[in-house]
Structures are given as structure tokens and as C-alpha cells.
Design a protein around this nucleic acid. Structure first.
Lengths: 351, 351
DNA sequence: TTGAAAGCGCTAACAC
DNA sequence: GTGTTAGCGCTTTCAA
């Protein structure tokens, strides 16, 4: 049945197979398999004989063979477009990944991470991972074109969860975030502290479904309630990066000299704003009050006086992990869940 | 040969197999396989027939079956102990991961990332991934106990690369970093600017093989050359985190009131030092000059006046990726490579 | 409680 | 240039 050790190159040592264990223990292959999968169906005595053989031969079940037979890999793909710098250098995205990782590994899944540079590649990568059966399902990030993939996945019963909604009317399989509550509270807070010229550095338009879960919505609602009129000129659109925050504040200040506060959609953009404030010869929290968007630990530590919208990115990733597992195990879709943002005050404004 | 669509649950759609394609195209399975693997051995005409069938059936090769047959998965494990917060929240480690990811995906490998909380689990995880054949090889991080795993891997011809050396005398399969040159230049620079009380916030002792590639070594060498005597009391040991940096500066300043400069082994620790400086009522770069350890983009942006040792973490990860691929493809070990740190001056000291 | 035989989807060896 | 056959290492009927 089994051939002699395959003398590839120098000393490739043949790994023991389940058959080797069976032979050694004097039982059938199926019995060995049972010991690993349904051990309650095996006598204590035979089990011990098998386990001895396992130890003696240093046997480890071949995960690939198991996957082929069972038609599942116990692996989940985490695919994010926009390139590896965008992903691995964005602490907020890393929090999402961390949340997913923790949940998935706790449940015995491996995590394949992929961050192709181009959206097109990302879409291909998602399809490939799933269709080639490398993974049992994917957690994926909104990007243009993802809706088509989702459509196909729905038809073919492939499993996925999205980090945010990917098209209007998506009802299932998403772990989303509603930024409006945090933005609303943040804007109210700023107004209550006497600010009336409040800048908004929003996320890129392409990233969101315009609607009631948006930063802008919370901001506008708060202004309305306070009878402050909405000024388009106080709104900027960044791309989550430091640079875009820096640039946003620069132009905000130029066009609105009276500006005294800025609300940011992300922490890295808040850093850019802060840097721009200092470069303009102004003092953070005295001349301009900044509200950050993620409430990252680092931000709290570096800028203890900066209040922040709380972005539960870890929980979001965790939730996505839970959802994909449940979807795989039940074989049916999961209702979408939307987490809420909050607002954390850290105002020890200077003067 | 092939059974009717397996009506699991509702509508699990059967994926086309290579046999289905073969039948449809009127060729043998092997010919279909050839089209995907050695297409130059197939006539243009049959190839086209096969590809039509592939398209019509929406066929995708099953990666698991290929892996089982070929005895390789085209997947590399990236395993780091110390837990997911330590990993995903450390921008420097993310740079290593990013470097590895970019190289590996470019070469057609998937990356499985795993960050177990306990070192013990990490060691188990490394073994499992490799022994169960989930991955073709692993990139792993120094931790106590890794040396035993390496020993076993060497014996059994399993493939690995380490990010740094894991035991004294390791000669192969590592992508290491020599911190001494950067530390030396940094210390010389500080001395040349008139500093004589220079604090050192080093990495944790357990992380390094004490030797000539150490931060301390570069620091001491520079002091010696300048005829400054080495003062143990100016040296602290952190654990790469903000908190440890904060605490380090606090005690440094208490015990060395004359201190005017601090050299840090990592950027997060430098952030902690900077925060502590400000909390002590001192001004960064005027009262205390700080040198950071990683030269992260964020640090450059947030603190433009802070010089830094340059930590080529991306390159290190990239190199590790290159090495593991070469090791797998040639079947033989790779000589270890040590990257050098440099020093980047950004001194626009205030006053 | 245990075992025999078939086969998951692919490719390597060896025909033709 | 193309096809046949066996088998990668496991689990799943089904039978004993």
C-alpha cells in the first residue's frame, strides 16, 4: 500500500499517516480516525493502544487531507483592498483585524490576511480564495464592485461577512458601524462649550452609503438643534490619512479664520489636524479644540486633552468573526448588525 | 463516476470538477490539468476547447485537492507570540508583517497570521501549522522555547525563518537586525551636540542575545570614544510600549536631574518619553532631546524635530519572506542575513 | 464497538 | 500531444 520513504533531495522524512498508526496499533484506519473525531465511540482500551502508536510514530493528522474529505478548511480569509500600507499602517483597521483574529482563532479557525493594492485585485482575490476552496468564508471590506461579488456569493451559497454595508438595502451578513450618534454627541458637546464654527473632516465619500449612519448626519442634526446654520465650507473630505487631515485643517483655517473646533472622522486625520494647528502657530485645545474619530489608545496617551468619538473597531472585527462562523455552521445568512459609536469627553481645555 | 448534486440544506450548488470539464471538452482529465499547469504541452486548439468548457461550467481548480496531491499548500504561517495586542497594536511589528505579506503574496503565497497570547500556545501553534501541513513553512518571532522547535524542524526538514536570532550561534534562516550602528551614530550625534547625560531606554533583556548587535553596545562604544563614562543609572529597560517609555523617563529624570537627552529603542517608547517630558513641565527638544528607535512615518509626522534610529522593519519582513520562499524552493537552508540600522537627523532643536 | 471499500479532486507515472 | 491508472491521506457509508 504505502511506498518506501520518498528520498527527495537529501533526507525528507516521511510523515506517519493514519494507516501507519492503524497498522502499528493493530486496528483499522477508521478506528484511528474515530479516536480523533468521535473518540467516545471507541473503547478506552483501543483508544489507548491507538494513542500510544500516535506518540511512537509522532503522528499528526494531515489537515489538507481532512479538508479535502470534509469539504472545509477551517480557514477564513480577511481581505481588504487599497493596499498593504493602507491596511497595516492604519491602527483602526488593525483593530478590526485583531478583533476578527481573536474570535476566529479562539474558535479554531486560521486567518488568511490579504491586502492587494488594487481594488480589482482584491475582488479577484476574494473570489479566488473562496472559489478555490482555500477558505470556508471571507470577511471583506466595502469597495466598489464588492456588491457584484456578494450577489454571486448569495447565488452560489458562498459565505461572507462585510465590514460595513456594501450596497443600499443590504440586510444581512454585515457588521456595520453607525457613526452618527458619536458625531451628534461630539458636535453637541462642542456647541455647549461655546463653539459655533466647527469644522468637519469627514471620511471619503466613496466609503459610505450616504444616510443616517453618517458622521455628517450627526453633525448636521446637532447644529440644527442648536439653531446653528450648516455651512458647507466647514466640511472637508479626507481619506483617513494624516496628510489628508493636515491639508484639511490648512484649508479650513484659510477659508474660515474664525474656526475654533474640528471634528475628525479618524485618529490619523486628527493627528494631521493637530500638526497643522501647531504649524499654524496655534495651540491645541486653547485655540482650536479637536475631536478625534477612533479613540485609539495611542491617541488617548499622546493627546490626553483630546476628546473623541469612540470607534469600536475591535468589537466590529470580533462581531464579523462571530458572524462568519455562525453563517458557516448554520449554513444560513445572518441578520446584519450595526454597532453604535459613543463620545468620550476629555476636555481639560487650556484656559 | 460523479454523483448528483449533493442537496445539502437548501441549495448547495455543486462546483464543477476537472472531470466535468474533461467530459464537456471531450478530453481526458490529465489534459485539463495540463492546461492549468503545463499549458505549453497542449495544442492551441484543445486548449481553447478546454477553456471554453471551463468558462461554461465556471470551473475553478480546487486548491485543497492540488495541495494534497502536490504536498504543498502555497501558504506561509506568520506566528508571533505575546498576544494579538502586542502584535496588531505595534506599528513596527505591522511593518514586518507588511513586508512579509507583500513579498509572499507577490510570489503567489497566502499568509496565515497567528498571534497566540501565550508563548506556550505560540510554540504549539507553530508546530501544529507545520506538522499538520497547513503551511509550507513559517516565519516566526524569537521567544523562549523557539530554539527547541528550530532544532526539531532542522531534524525533520521543516521550513522556517526567524525574525532575529533565536539562540546563540544561529547561523542560518534568520533575518536579523543590528541595532548597534544606528545607536552608535545616534549617541555620537547627541554627544556632538553637547549632551553628556544621555539616557537609554532599551528593549527588554529577554528579547536579545546580548552582544555586538545591541543598542547598548552602540551606545557604550560612542560614549567610550568620547571619553564619557558609562553610567548604569542612565539605562532603563522597557517592553516596547508607551507605558514603559513613560515610566522610564520618569525614573530617569528623578535619578538623573541633569539628564538632557534620551535614546529610545522603539517609537512607542519614545512617545511615552515625550509625554513624560511634557508632564514634567519640560519642553521636548529644548530641555530634553529625544531620539526615537524606529523612524516610523507617524513619528516623523507627529514629531518632526525628533531624530531617529532607522529600523528597516519592512525590509526585514520582506527579507524573511524572500528567505522562506527560497528555502522551500531549494529545499536547503539559507544563510542568515543581518540588516543594519542607520541614523536620521532631524534636529531643529528649539533654541 | 469495529472494519472494508469507496472516493473527496487533483496530478505523476507511464503508457500510447 | 494525449489518455489511463493509481493514489495523495483522510472520512463516510454500510456492513459485521
Amino acid at each position: 500500500m504505502h511506498h518506501i520513504t520518498n528520498l527527495k533531495e537529501k533526507s525528507m522524512i516521511a510523515m506517519a499517516t493514519l494507516y501507519d498508526v492503524a497498522k502499528r496499533a493493530g486496528v483499522s484506519p477508521k478506528t484511528v480516525s474515530r479516536v480523533f473525531n468521535e473518540s467516545h465511540l471507541v473503547t478506552e482500551e483501543t483508544k489507548n493502544r491507538v494513542l500510544s502508536a500516535v506518540r511512537e510514530l509522532d503522528y499528526h493528522p494531515n489537515a489538507i487531507a481532512t479538508s479535502l474529505k470534509k469539504q472545509r478548511t477551517n480557514t477564513i480569509g480577511f481581505v481588504v483592498p487599497y493596499g498593504s500600507s493602507f491596511v497595516f499602517q492604519d491602527p483602526n483597521m488593525m483593530e478590526q483585524l485583531r478583533g476578527a483574529h481573536d474570535q476566529l482563532t479562539r474558535e479554531g479557525y486560521e486567518v488568511i490576511v490579504s491586502a492587494p493594492i488594487y481594488q480589482k485585485d482584491a475582488l479577484t482575490e476574494i473570489s479566488r480564495l473562496v472559489k478555490h476552496r482555500n477558505v470556508d468564508g471571507v470577511i471583506l471590506y466595502p469597495a466598489s464592485g464588492v456588491d457584484r461579488i456578494i450577489n454571486e456569493f448569495n447565488l452560489k451559497n458562498f459565505y461572507y461577512v462585510t465590514l460595513g454595508t456594501c450596497f443600499e438595502g443590504q440586510k444581512t451578513n454585515f457588521a456595520d458601524l453607525n457613526v452618527a450618534p458619536g458625531a451628534y454627541l461630539a458636535a453637541r458637546h462642542l456647541v455647549s462649550r461655546g463653539h459655533s464654527q466647527i469644522g468637519l473632516v469627514n471620511k471619503p465619500r466613496s466609503f459610505f452609503m450616504i444616510g443616517k449612519d453618517d458622521l455628517l448626519y450627526g453633525y448636521q442634526t446637532a447644529l440644527q438643534e442648536s439653531n446653528l446654520k450648516y455651512n458647507v465650507n466647514l466640511v472637508r473630505e479626507g481619506d483617513y490619512t494624516f496628510e489628508s487631515g493636515y491639508h484639511a485643517f490648512k484649508t479650513l483655517k484659510e477659508q474660515n479664520p474664525e474656526i475654533t473646533a474640528v471634528l475628525c472622522a479618524s485618529d490619523p486625520m486628527a493627528y494631521g489636524v493637530i500638526r497643522a494647528i501647531e504649524d499654524a502657530g496655534l495651540v491645541l485645545s486653547r485655540d482650536i479644540e479637536v475631536v478625534a474619530g477612533d479613540n485609539l489608545p495611542l491617541t488617548q496617551k499622546l493627546f490626553p486633552s483630546v476628546s473623541s468619538i469612540n470607534n469600536p473597531a475591535y468589537e466590529q472585527g470580533n462581531l464579523a468573526g462571530k458572524m462568519i462562523i455562525s453563517i458557516i455552521q448554520t449554513g444560513s445568512e445572518s441578520p446584519g448588525i450595526t454597532l453604535k459609536t459613543e463620545f468620550v469627553v476629555r476636555s481639560n481645555r487650556i484656559l
